[in-house]
Write a protein that binds this DNA or RNA. Sequence first.
RNA 1: GCGGGCAUGGCGGAAUGGCAGACGCGCCGGUCUUAGGAACCGGUGGGAAACCGUGCAGGUUCGAGUCCUGUUGCCCGCACCA
Length: 800
Amino acid sequence: MKYDPKQIEPKWQKKWEEAGVFAAQDKSDKPKFYGLVEFPYPSGAGMHVGHIKAYAGLEVISRKRRMQGYNVLFPIGFDAYGLPTENYAIKTGIHPREVTDRNIRKFTEQLQRVGFSFDWSRVIDTTQESYYKWTQYIFLKLFEHGLVFRDTALVNYCPSCKVVLSNEDSQGGHCDICKSEIIQKSKDVWYLRITAYADKLLQGLDEVDYLPNVRLQQENWIGKSTGAFVNFRIQDSEEQLRIYTTRPDTLFGVTFMVIAPEHPLLEKLRDRIRNMEEVKAYQEACQKKTEFERTQLAKEKTGVCLQGITAVNPVSGEGIPVFIADYVMMGYGTGAIMAVPAHDERDYAFARKFGLRILPVIEGGDIRIAAYTGDGRMIHSGFLDGITNKKDAIARMLAYLEEKGIGEAGVQYKMKDWAFNRQRYWGEPIPIVHCAHCGIVPVPYEELPLRLPDVKEFSPGEGGESPLAKIPEFVHCKCPRCGRDARRETDTMPQWAGSSWYFLRYVDPHNDTCFADADKLKYWLPVDWYNGGMEHVTRHMIYSRFWHRFLYDIGEVPTREPYAKRTAQGLILGPDGEKMSKSKGNVVDPNEVVDVYGADVLRTYILFMGDYASAAPWSETGVKGCKRFLERFADLYELTTDEPSSPEVESALHKTIRKVDADIEEMKFNTAIAAMMSLINTVSEEKHISREDYMVFIRLLCPFAPHLCEELYSRMGGEGLCAQAAWPEYDEAKTVDATIEVAVQINGKLRATVILDKDASREAALAAAKAEPRIQAMLEGKTVVKEIVVPGKIVNLVLR
RNA sequence: GCGGGCAUGGCGGAAUGGCAGACGCGCCGGUCUUAGGAACCGGUGGGAAACCGUGCAGGUUCGAGUCCUGUUGCCCGCACCA
């Protein structure tokens, strides 16, 4: 058969659509499978082949599940709020709505050309009122349950985007979107109290099947540590200095304290601090430092001693100096530390620089050279002296602190509350009203959606205000509580909002009385398998797990965890081996590949190019190889007759079914395809395959190259559609060969091979091995001291 | 600095502790052709051979790419986290 993708692909895509074969059934006796891929942000650049790889994995699995008799939900949608579209609008004056609709059309066309088996009746767009109404609803629920709060804080501010960023969006001191340097700015910020869910998010990881590195990254992100809070007295003062430490066992070794430059104690003690000028100068210098300077260039410790302030070591009673230094951060713990220079590298460096006392309290190491962070016997530590076990020492100290009321055990998390507002137009309006009399008042549920008003001017206001602040009709409103004049919140939600619950909406996307029907949620949840990029493992996944867990706690969803299983695909690199990017000009457009080679070749190549989870460079010649593969597969059509296949072909077919089936489940698509290539080689050598067996092969390849397989299936006279045909099953008996080649080793080195009956005895194997001329020659004049026989694999003779 | 991962032909990559290099690309040779940067067929780790070969050095084992110890290089995540 001549393989002409241009002719067959549109034809079958149309037939699938007409037959509605990919529409998930809300009621069904079949077992359910919910496969989820991360929905794309519809950028103006269109999709690149990386998107295709991200979806192709679960595409194959979903198609296989349908053939296996599952009721499959495999949906797609668009995460369409976001900065690039808004920036494009600012530049061109074209409304983000228009740009978004255009981009969504382009993405949809691209996805359909590849023949993905998405349920197109459930497409969602986070920027539609019917969708963001429920994003706002969930926000109000969070508000109602005290998980939304407002605070004035130093925030990460991007001077280029003119927007406040979460810590997640400004890692390394650079804006996640435009890469410019972040500055600290004091602002009113809406927070979601995700830290209240830190423990639940951590414990939930025990209930799910995530890739080990995905789980680890989430654990690190949450960053739980256990330790103690200890209150240090300030001499001649009512003030106390509260610190957090993971090493309360070293308390006797505390010889000074350090607080963050922004620590509130400085204000309280300003009259007592004799060198306030110097302190102020230091504070200002710190503020000017970028996050980068403060963290990356952290080799040299700096700080200022607070003259006139003395703290008291609560266990030794010793008076100790207090410093401010920027190696202590206000954002973690209490913004103050007890310094144990003998056993902490940072404290040691600081003590060395400022000539402070270094008192060892754990034996081992040499404090003249470096801090000792290992374990050992407690010394110079009063009631702890002689204890050799760190755990015991910590327990004793905690008991003492609690007894004396100077401290207690505590935990800390690296995860911070989620800064939830952006000074942007293209996002969900935050449904809050500021009333001079009532304070912060939520918009009533029945007024949702709070519509995003139409504007002509998209650039942010001066000082980074949201464009919404420039629309009087939007800003001015009546307080829902007292009816007096009030102002609307003009900030919008961050891009992460819409994607935090989209998997729930797919279950019931057209419902306008609730975000999804409870029975449907109960049927479909949890997502059985979620695949996406590693870059979304911490932020998007943590956020969405948080929202989901919250909804579970208030009884709105039936499962604690949203995703039962999570995998991640590797990047597709450019042909040059570099990460694909517009600036490098190495981006491969899937449309061009489909134009030249067809969708089936694109799909097959993307899954064949390497391990699905690893990065691999694009290769144009590799694509051609897959084209040849599909052509050769189509050519087998000429080799079919009603005669049964040869035993070689039959055995190869059943082995291949077994391998492809197992490999798909482990996302080892590359070896599954390789096995099918080998099967073609076997059939070509035998020059024949039965019609029946060829039909089996067609169904086996169908999830990878569905258009070609539909065409062949129909030409072979198959009933209905191949996409709905049964998944092939293998016959174990037919995977066993009558004879096996067994390797013969002498002293562990391969010397010969022998052909044996499939269930040859140990004796028969040994006899055959020893009869082999080459082996016979090597046995000459030697003693066999050991004979190892692994049935069907190997015979090893140990000689002396 | 801490945590995790990886290292195999010219390239992408295969190998439940049991014949290293499956499968594909590339390359070489051939067939067909006015032509081949098309298609098809054959070959292809190194070495003349004995043999040698999975970053490097050890170890465990009858047997190690695979397990253990150390080491080097690269990649990813976190990063003055107290």
